[in-house]
Amino acid sequence: MSEKVVIEIENLTIRFNLANQKVDNLKEYIIRLIKKELMFQEFLAIKNLNFQVKEGESWGIIGANGSGKSTLLKVISGILKPYKGKVKVKGSIAPLIELGAGFDANLTARENIYLNGCVLGHTEKYMREHFDEIVQFAGIEEFLDSPIKNYSSGMKARLSFAVATMVQPEILIVDEILSVGDYAFRKKCENRMNEMLSKGVTLLYVSHSLEEIQRLCTHTLWLNKGELKMIGKSKEVCNAYLTEMKRLI
């Protein structure tokens, strides 16, 4: 395995403002400004996180709900900016973060494939070349020209996954969206990810299924309330996580 570091995270802190999010109109903003009630209620979604991912590694990310897993993926994808610390990413990223996000409900699947590909930073020409492959993998040939709003969530997930993985990213980021697919499709995705891993793609995978993590990922990161709880080989981290969960129940 190569020693090149593709993702480097240093002292990463992500801050959200819980209080200010509620003021979403000018009227209230001005009233609060005058009354001096513009409060800043800080919430740190990720606290002082450090870790490195080398090229070709596959990382699972586990933790209870609200522990900052998705936030971490968003920072790595460049959607969120760090409040403190540094995030360095080398290579193209295909983020599979929110299911169905990035599809325009009124457009057909055909049009959405192009739109989605362009959102991921590909050219139209590139998408045209890979179009058939994507449609075939998603298995939606019959529904290609119906609007996405008529699609089931499973079908949308298939299409998302197909677009993101067909275009050969260097880093693939998957946020538990595959859980809605049926068994056959999940197997298909797993095979696809394994195939990509063997070609040297770096994978970051969030899932609540420890089995899947252990099958796919060599390393695992355990987040707890925004802090790093444990990091290491998947087997050890998953076992420790399981023990901890059992203790809590």
Partner: peptide, 9 residues
């Protein structure tokens, strides 16, 4: 917003 939440653009 759905596109903006999905990837960096």
């Amino acid at each position: 917003s759905s596109l903006i939440k999905k990837a960096y653009v």
